[in-house]
Amino acid sequence: MKNFKLLLSVSLVAISGYFLLSADHIDAPAVQGTSSDITDFYAFQGSNTNNLVFAANLQGLLSPANTADAAFDENVLIEFNIDNTGDNVEDLVIQAIPRDGKMYFFGPFVPSSTGLNSMIGASATQTVVDITPYGEQAIIATNGNISAFAGPRDDPFFMDFAQYGEIIAGNASGFNNPGSDTFAGSNVLSVVIEVPKSTIGGTGTINTWVEAKTKI
């Protein structure tokens, strides 16, 4: 077992059946440029309405020239946390950690401890997928009703930072439509898993957040 300690978290409140996201670009200088840097977190109902999808994007602002050399850090655990009882403490987790060109997913499972420290759930349901190389067709692995992906993707988040600066400076009253996408042409490293709702438990609203934790 490996111990992991919290580096950074991005939180989200998700309601089953709806698409919600949290974004955090260029706001974590201590980990910027590494796969500890969480840029976006998405949680949404899958095309199969019996499923939920959890997606974390990492290491943003990758240029096309640098994306092929970008890699997940084998000392960094990505952990999706799920609170289905409304107490803001994780009842279930899904973990993802890379090894030798593959991403290993564990869960969902009940963690042995909550909060800042985590142990890899080696006895939990395991789904393994080859990390998709840049520029190649997405490799998706399935394990029963669970599907998983890991690899570089075009950054899907839209933000006009120049106009945002004008608004903050008092020079503009709002955003343009459609505006200019600051992240156009840049890439991220994505970790995505789709699981049956039945494995999440609870009904109605769930709280979910993602953390990047480093091995100690």
Rank of each mutant, 00 (worst) to 15 (best):
N88K: 14
V89Q: 13
V89R: 11
E90V: 13
E90P: 02
D91L: 06
L92K: 14
L92A: 01
V93D: 03
Q95W: 05
A96Y: 01
I97D: 00
D100Q: 10
G101T: 03
G101M: 06
G101K: 04
G101V: 05
K102F: 09
Y104R: 11
Y104S: 09
Y104P: 00
F105Q: 01
P108H: 10
F109G: 07
F109H: 15
F109M: 05
V110G: 00
V110H: 02
S113V: 15
G115W: 05
L116N: 12
S118C: 04
S118R: 15
I120F: 04
I120K: 05
I120Q: 06
I120P: 02
G121H: 03
G121A: 15
S123V: 10
S123H: 03
T125I: 08
Q126E: 14
Q126Y: 06
Q126V: 15
T127N: 04
T127D: 02
V128F: 09
D130M: 03
D130W: 01
Y134W: 11
Y134N: 08
G135E: 03
E136L: 07
E136V: 11
Q137P: 01
Q137S: 14
A138V: 05
A138D: 13
I140K: 10
A141I: 12
A141L: 10
A141M: 11
N143E: 14
G144Y: 03
N145Y: 08
F149I: 06
F149S: 04
P152T: 09
R153G: 00
R153S: 00
D154V: 11
P156I: 07
F158K: 10
F158I: 12
F161L: 15
F161G: 01
F161R: 14
F161M: 15
A162F: 11
A162L: 13
Q163I: 07
Y164N: 08
G165R: 10
I168M: 12
I168V: 15
I168L: 14
A169Y: 07
A169M: 14
A169P: 02
N171V: 10
N171I: 09
N171A: 14
S173V: 13
G174Q: 13
G174V: 14
N176D: 15
N176Y: 05
N176L: 14
